[in-house]
Design a protein around this nucleic acid. Structure first.
Lengths: 206, 206
DNA sequence: GTGATTGGATAGTGTTACTCTCCAATATTA
DNA sequence: TAATATTGGAGAGTAACACTATCCAATCAC
């Protein structure tokens, strides 16, 4: 398959495929001469994955590259790889000042209340802190009761996810990293729809 | 309070405050002369809300304006207002072609399986469809089992949210719209942390 | 052999979220 | 009161981003 066929197969403009190639999101094809290279199914699949990440998940090209790099070439430590993956997912929280003895007080309290591991190096901790701080600044702080409720339900979801993780290490990383990213929009949409469903039932029932 | 004091109180550059004023996110102060106006606490609070929405929630200025307009001036129909609010939240899904008899097959099937209302006019339906399609395109389709599990947990969360909705209509709209937007980053962070917690426990336990 | 296509590079485009500069009209301060 | 600073308002400038377009000589396909 030449490049124009690849673009057609993925339903993308040729210029865009060249762009992804240039940006290193898509691995090069096999050169057959100075002005020719061939591409295969793996390139088509990769383009679909790139579009899923930059489209529905809403990643920037940079962030998508970081995630893809992790999937392509994971470390042997799932925990650390997952940490790095989460770090390259939005929202990107600001780095804490290095000398702050307690840079994430809200997140630490939350995790203690939930009886979960608190590791300030993990990017999601900073994300949680800034999300809690934002809710607070906006005049809608999250009560401990709400936090416990959310935390409990999400731990149930996470347990479900973990149960279904493939055994084989490379597949496990791919599943975990992509599952974190790809299923998040589904989760948000489902919550919004659950709200709508509840509101509709209330409207009709009252 | 003059504009520079307002900017200082909100911790923002003066130019940025002027920008939000120009863009209509922040209501004007009370003019006291041709080159003077005064601002009060409501302006400080509004700036904090704007930053929460554009920062942690990740809205664009356009999207934040749409959300704020809804909070300022909601219709009397909570269901419809919630629908409009969700429509202005990311991710923005493409409009379906008007003549398609079944524009959201995956979302429809999902909602039927969950025994929830299916209303194709609701923006979250399109969002769910594109999220499911993206997961599928990326080679990680969501099984019905997973959908049921996620849907059930998120309905529990939504029920909790609804229980705590204020009775007074204006407050209810504000709670619903801002709660949808502001708590989403918290939910994502909690899921990521639950994964991390589970992975850490497994690492140590094994 | 001739016109189309290729890989590769460079430059241009439209959008977004600020940020800067300027201005004359006021305020504040000395 | 005179010198200095600040204000509201408008316009232009900027940096990042995700493409998109143009160009080129080398090579294909017919």
């Amino acid at each position: 398959m030449r490049i124009s066929a690849l673009a057609a197969a993925a339903g993308l403009p040729l210029a865009t495929v060249k762009y992804y190639l240039r940006e290193g999101l898509l691995h090069p094809g096999t050169s057959t001469s100075a002005t020719q290279a061939t591409y295969d199914e793996s390139h088509v699949r990769r383009l679909r994955l790139i579009r899923a990440l930059t489209g529905a998940v809403g990643l920037s090209v940079q962030q998508a590259r970081a995630i893809l790099a992790l999937v392509d070439d994971p470390g042997d430590d799932l925990y650390a790889t997952l940490g790095r993956a989460v770090g390259s997912l939005p929202p990107t929280a600001a780095e804490p000042s290095a000398d702050d003895p307690d840079p994430f007080p809200r997140a630490r309290a939350a995790l203690e209340a939930l009886d979960q591991v608190y590791d300030p190096r993990f990017a999601a901790v900073a994300q949680l802190e800034s999300a809690l701080a934002a809710a607070e600044a906006a005049g809608m702080p999250i009560s401990e009761e709400r936090l416990l409720e959310y935390g409990r339900r999400l731990r149930e979801i996470a347990a479900f996810d973990l149960e279904r993780m493939p055994r084989e290490p490379h597949a496990a990383v791919e599943y975990t990293v992509l599952g974190t990213a790809l299923y998040e929009p589904v989760i948000l949409a489902l919550r919004r729809l659950a709200h709508q469903d509840a509101a509709a039932r209330r409207e009709l029932g009252a």
